[in-house]
Each structure stands twice: as structure tokens, then as C-alpha cells.
């Protein structure tokens, strides 16, 4: 069964459907959270929150507005970013320095996890962006920086970063177009 159908069953309180759904989404959710949060223990915590929230608010899912996987990944990303920002705000300087040292680090993290067709596809499409588009998008999405922080890190005006983000995402859409 597809994630979308399962999620509708889950909204009705179906535990078995949730277990099945877990099998489909836990990898993408955990991987994404891990990519943003980095710390394994904290990643587990955030992933657990997200998956529990998936159960709790399954009834909010509106199939007319996108796929179940997109929905849960959007949720996971929001939570991961919140976590990494509050960790930064709490002055985890060491972590921040480590993060700074390894920079955008798309390549290196890609190695941590198993290679896959989709990963390869995304990587190839990211390679087709201009350097500034790619950095603007990945610093925000994979590293959880706000566009203001991205602008600061790349020494660019705010307007430029916003435009690069938009152009980067649009170009990514064109490149990945048929892959959905």
C-alpha cells in the first residue's frame, strides 16, 4: 500500500497501518533529521517526535495538497531545523565550529549513507546549479541556517540570497521534474 492510503487509515486509528507506514517513512525521516541535526542521539529524539506527531495529527493530512511523504518530510525538516537552531542559540559553540569546519558538506554526508538512485539524481541536479544557488539552498536546507545567516556566511546581500534560493529551487524542479 502507498503511504497516502496508509496515512488515511492511520488517521482512523489503525495501528497496523501505522507500522506499515513507519516502514516506508522512517528511513527518509531519520535520514533527513540526521542530515540537519547531525548528532545521532538528538536526531533520534527529533525523529521520534516527528513520527509520533505523524500518528497524532494524521487526520490533518490533506491528500489534495501533496503526497504523504512530502507532508511528513516537511514536518521533519521543520522540527530538525528548530532543533539545530535552538542548539546553536544555546551556545553550543563547539558544535557550531565543527559545523563551520565542514561547511556545506553535501558530498561528505552523502557518503555516510547508502548510495541510491534518488541520491545520485539529486546530487547531479545540485551540480547543475550555479555555486551560489547551490550554497544558498544547501546551507538553508541541509544545515538549517536562516537566509540572513546564509547571506552573512556567503557575504551576499539579503536580496541576492533570496533570489538564489528561488532560482535554485526552480532549477532543481526542472532537473528533477520527471522523478516524482
Amino acid at each position: 500500500m502507498q503511504a497516502d492510503e496508509l496515512l488515511v487509515l492511520v488517521a482512523g486509528g489503525d495501528h497496523q497501518a501505522f507500522e506499515e507506514l513507519y516502514g516506508l517513512v522512517s528511513g527518509p525521516v531519520y535520514g533527513l533529521v540526521r542530515r540537519v541535526v547531525r548528532d545521532p542521539a538528538q536526531s533520534e529524539e527529533v525523529a521520534q517526535e516527528v513520527l509520533l506527531e505523524l500518528w497524532r495529527s494524521a487526520a490533518r493530512f490533506d491528500p489534495g495538497r501533496g503526497s504523504a511523504l512530502s507532508w511528513v518530510l516537511t514536518l521533519a525538516h521543520r522540527r530538525a531545523v528548530d532543533r539545530v537552531r535552538s542548539a546553536r542559540a544555546a551556545g553550543e559553540r563547539e558544535q557550531r565550529e565543527a559545523r563551520r569546519a565542514d561547511g556545506p558538506a553535501f558530498d561528505q554526508v552523502a557518503e555516510e549513507v547508502e548510495a541510491g538512485l534518488e541520491r545520485e539524481w539529486v546530487r547531479r541536479c545540485l551540480d547543475r546549479l550555479t555555486a551560489l544557488q547551490r550554497q544558498s539552498v544547501t546551507l538553508a536546507y541541509y544545515d538549517g541556517y536562516t537566509y540572513r545567516e546564509v547571506a552573512e556566511r556567503l557575504s551576499l546581500p539579503l536580496g541576492t540570497v533570496k533570489t538564489r534560493m528561488r532560482d535554485g529551487l526552480t532549477r532543481l524542479r526542472d532537473c528533477l521534474g520527471g522523478a516524482a
Binding site: V29, A110, E118, L169
Partner: peptide
Amino acid sequence: LAEDAVRLAWSTAAPAP
């Protein structure tokens, strides 16, 4: 745009513990 952003997550899937 949010759908586009989510595609960036495709490259990050990893087996959960």
C-alpha cells in the same frame, strides 16, 4: 516551492536505528 525543497530530502534517507 515547498515540493521542490522536499526533493532535497530524497538524497538523505538512511536506515533508522
